[in-house]
Design a protein around this nucleic acid. Structure first.
Length: 285
DNA sequence: CTACCATCCTGGTTGC
DNA sequence: TGCAACCAGGATGGTA
């Protein structure tokens, strides 16, 4: 589930539920995920008050006043559930993949669940150390910010011979995109995922930057995309998956030109960088 | 420096 | 129905 729109949705829900509230209990249920949990994670968080929750790229940042900043990433399968006092399941015991539980004053509990354990939860010492943290230091611009536009994108792609699809997966080019939204943005921009990255310049880069912003904004508006049983932290389904033009739609007619590519009968699926790419070879050049 | 590949893990789906 | 193979939203570290 978690590319930028899903992480943004999670951050907004966490901010609404937790900002201003104090952590009263922390349960760490395994040694770590992709990275080990910080030493004494429970001790460092217990008693702290959440001052602000923000997103950077696909990272969730939980600010604790003058204390450390929690840096969390959902990986491929990470989920966050917010359970308020009286909610269904609030008193159920944690499941096998509920690795971290945070209890807040007022009875709210946050569960960090991650079946595949590709996610992570680490700490930056304080706000001053955040930007320079190794996980964040090399990230490219936020795609929805003014710092990201056609010329900036073109500059980041210049000199790269790799396919533009692969370049966009590189978080140093632009932060927060993943496999799904790259396919969607390339489709809306009419650019082939196979096109060499450095040839996306000028007007093409303008169009791609605009398509990225538009697709991400629309997805956030829809609460993100639900894959499998992904739900927002409040239990609601995101529904942007119904708006996908090409992702997961191999063999269906291209919704842009309504063409049926003779060889395959519509949207094609290829493998790039070991991942599935979906596109319309007629509309995307 | 770029580019490609394997790898970390579990679970759901597909195909025989 | 059973079971094996394959596939999945990400990121990194090694090798060429």
């Amino acid at each position: 589930m978690p590319e930028l729109p899903e992480v943004e949705t999670v951050c907004r829900a966490l901010a609404r539920a937790l900002e201003g509230r104090r952590i009263v209990r922390v349960e760490v249920r395994r040694p770590g995920l992709r990275l080990p949990f910080p030493a004494d994670l429970a001790g460092r968080l217990t008693g702290a008050r959440v001052t602000q929750i923000r997103r950077r790229a696909k990272y969730i940042l939980i600010h604790l006043g003058t204390g450390p900043v929690v840096i969390a990433h959902l990986g491929m399968s990470g989920r966050v559930t917010i359970l308020n006092a009286g909610d269904n399941g609030r008193d159920e015991p944690p499941g096998r993949h509920d690795h971290l539980l945070l209890d807040f004053e007022g009875g709210t509990q946050v569960r960090f669940n991650d079946a595949r354990r590709f996610g992570l939860v680490v700490l930056a010492e304080d706000e001053a150390a955040l930007a320079g943290h190794p996980l964040l230091a090399d990230l490219g611009p936020e795609p929805l910010s003014n710092a990201f536009n056609g010329p900036v994108l073109a500059a980041a792609l210049a000199g790269r011979k790799t396919p533009v699809k692969a370049a966009l997966l590189d978080q140093r080019v632009v932060a927060g995109l993943g496999n799904i939204y790259i396919c969607e943005a390339l489709f809306h921009a009419g650019i082939s995922p196979r096109r060499s990255a450095h040839t996306v310049a000028g007007k093409r880069a303008e169009g791609l930057a605009a398509a990225i912003k538009q697709v991400l904004a629309a997805a956030i508006e829809s609460g993100g995309s639900s894959l499998r049983d992904y739900v927002q932290p409040n239990g609601e389904l995101g529904y942007f998956q119904h708006a996908w033009a090409v992702y997961g739609r191999e063999g269906t007619p291209c919704p842009g030109c309504d063409c049926e590519v003779p060889a395959t009968g519509g949207v094609q699926r290829i493998t790039q960088s070991g991942r599935s790419t979906f596109f319309c070879p007629r509309r995307q050049r």
